[in-house]
Simulated scan of single mutants.
Amino acid sequence: MEVGQSVRVYRLRDRVSPVIAKKLGEVGVIQDYKMTDGSGVGFLVKFADNSAIWFFEDEVQPAPGN
Rank of each mutant, 00 (worst) to 15 (best):
residue 44 L to G: 05
residue 2 E to I: 01
residue 18 P to N: 03
residue 19 V to E: 15
residue 15 R to E: 11
residue 33 Y to E: 11
residue 44 L to W: 15
residue 51 S to N: 12
residue 27 V to D: 03
residue 52 A to D: 09
residue 13 R to D: 14
residue 38 G to W: 02
residue 5 Q to V: 05
residue 30 I to D: 01
residue 12 L to W: 04
residue 8 R to S: 08
residue 21 A to R: 15
residue 48 A to V: 02
residue 13 R to H: 13
residue 50 N to P: 00
residue 6 S to A: 14
residue 55 F to K: 03
residue 23 K to M: 12
residue 14 D to P: 01
residue 37 D to G: 07
residue 51 S to G: 02
residue 22 K to W: 00
residue 32 D to N: 13
residue 30 I to E: 00
residue 53 I to T: 14
residue 30 I to N: 01
residue 4 G to F: 10
residue 57 E to T: 09
residue 10 Y to I: 10
residue 47 F to H: 10
residue 43 F to V: 04
residue 22 K to H: 06
residue 2 E to S: 06
residue 12 L to V: 08
residue 65 G to F: 03
residue 16 V to R: 12
residue 24 L to M: 04
residue 54 W to D: 13
residue 52 A to E: 15
residue 29 V to T: 15
residue 2 E to M: 03
residue 47 F to L: 09
residue 44 L to P: 00
residue 44 L to K: 11
residue 37 D to L: 05
residue 55 F to R: 04
residue 55 F to S: 05
residue 32 D to K: 09
residue 21 A to K: 15
residue 27 V to G: 02
residue 9 V to R: 02
residue 63 A to R: 06
residue 61 Q to E: 15
residue 31 Q to A: 14
residue 23 K to P: 06
residue 50 N to H: 12
residue 22 K to G: 12
residue 10 Y to T: 05
residue 5 Q to T: 11
residue 50 N to Y: 09
residue 7 V to L: 04
residue 57 E to N: 13
residue 12 L to T: 06
residue 14 D to Q: 11
residue 4 G to W: 06
residue 15 R to V: 05
residue 30 I to P: 04
residue 25 G to M: 06
residue 62 P to D: 03
residue 53 I to N: 06
residue 36 T to M: 13
residue 13 R to Q: 13
residue 57 E to M: 12
residue 8 R to W: 01
residue 2 E to Q: 12
residue 3 V to P: 09
residue 37 D to V: 03
residue 48 A to P: 00
residue 50 N to C: 05
residue 50 N to D: 15
residue 5 Q to E: 15
residue 43 F to A: 05
residue 6 S to F: 14
residue 64 P to D: 12
residue 8 R to P: 01
residue 48 A to G: 00
residue 57 E to D: 15
residue 22 K to I: 00
residue 18 P to W: 00
residue 6 S to I: 03
residue 7 V to N: 00
residue 10 Y to S: 12
residue 12 L to P: 12
residue 43 F to M: 02
residue 8 R to Y: 03
residue 54 W to R: 12
residue 34 K to G: 05
residue 16 V to G: 07
residue 51 S to K: 10
residue 49 D to C: 04
residue 42 G to Q: 05
residue 7 V to M: 04
residue 21 A to Y: 09
residue 1 M to T: 08
residue 56 F to E: 14
residue 35 M to C: 05
residue 29 V to E: 14
residue 33 Y to K: 11
residue 31 Q to S: 11
residue 9 V to Q: 11
residue 62 P to R: 01
residue 26 E to N: 07
residue 26 E to F: 01
